[in-house]
Design a protein around this nucleic acid. Structure first.
Lengths: 140, 140
DNA sequence: CTCATTTAGTTTTATATCAAACTATTTATC
DNA sequence: GATAAATAGTTTGATATAAAACTAAATGAG
C-alpha cells in the first residue's frame, strides 16, 4: 500500500512546484499567466522560434491547448505568431521584447525553485532519482 | 539543466498513469468517470464513510472541486450524501451498492497499474524513490 | 495530373479545477 | 444570552485542458 503513495507524492510535489512558481512570479509582478504559459515562454527563451507543434511536444500538451495558451500570450504581448513562407500551415511563435524581458525573472524563479526542490538532496540522490524515474517513465 | 528534467518527468509520469488508469477502466466498461472520481471511490472503499472535508484532504483537491466531483458520482449512482445528525454542516459520503461493485475492478486496475509502474524497479529502488520524494515533498 | 491521404493548426464542446464569495451552522468570547 | 468569529459545504465565475471535428495546405499514390 505504501508503494501507491509514490504516485500520490508525485501529484502533490507537482502541485507544490506549480504553486511555488506562481507565487514567485506574482512576487515579481507577473500574475497574468499560469505555469503552462510559463513553460512556453521558457521554451522560447531556449529556442527563439518554435512551431505550434514544437511547443506542443515540448510542454507535453495537446495542440488545441497550445493554441489557446499561445493566443493568450499573444494578447498579453509576450509572443507573436507568424506563418511560414514555404508551408502555409506552419505557424512560428517567438518572444516579443516584452516577453524577452521576462528572462531574468524566469531564470531566478527557476533557480530558486530548484534550490528548494533539491534542498538536502545529494548529487547522488539526484542522479538516482532521475534514473529510477526514467525507468518508470519508460514502463508505460 | 538535466536536473530540471525531473520535474518534467514527474508531470509526464503522472499523465501516463492517469491515461493508463482511464484506459483500463474503459476496458472494464467504466467510462463515465475520471481519475479524480476514481480517487474518491477508492478512498471510500478503504473508509466506508467520509465527510466532504475528509475527501478533500484525501485526494488533495479543493472543497469546491470535491462538491462537483461527488455530485457527479451521486448522479451516476455510485455514492450517496447524508447530513450529519449532530452537526448540520457536515455531509457524509458513502458508496452505494453500485459503487461497491466497482471494488474488484478498481483493485485489479490498481494492481495492473502498479505492475507496470514498478516493472524492473527493485524493492531497494522503490524504497529509495519513496525516501527521496518524501524529502523533496517536505522541502516546500 | 488527379484524387486520396496526411498534416498543421484552429474551432468547438465538455469538463475538471481553483478561488472567491456565499449561506447556514457551530464555536468562542464577553 | 448576545455577538463575533470560525467552520462545512455550496455557489459562482473564470480558466486550463483534452478530444473530436474542422479547414486549409501539403504529400503520396496511381
Amino acid at each position: 500500500m505504501e508503494t501507491r503513495d509514490v504516485i500520490s507524492l508525485i501529484s502533490k510535489i507537482r502541485e507544490k512546484v506549480n504553486r511555488f512558481i506562481l507565487s514567485e512570479l506574482t512576487k515579481n509582478g507577473i500574475d497574468d499567466i499560469g505555469t503552462s504559459h510559463g513553460d512556453i515562454i521558457y521554451a522560447l527563451m531556449k529556442t527563439p522560434k518554435l512551431t505550434m507543434a514544437d511547443i506542443s511536444k515540448r510542454i507535453n500538451k495537446d495542440k488545441s491547448t497550445v493554441t489557446a495558451l499561445v493566443d493568450k500570450l499573444v494578447r498579453l504581448g509576450y509572443v507573436t505568431k507568424e506563418r511560414d513562407k514555404e508551408d502555409a500551415r506552419v505557424v512560428y511563435v517567438a518572444l516579443t521584447d516584452k516577453g524577452s524581458e521576462l528572462e531574468s525573472i524566469f531564470e531566478s524563479v527557476s533557480a530558486e525553485m530548484l534550490d528548494v526542490f533539491y534542498l538536502n538532496v545529494s548529487e547522488q540522490e539526484k542522479q538516482e532519482l532521475l534514473r529510477i524515474l526514467k525507468k518508470i517513465y519508460n514502463n508505460f
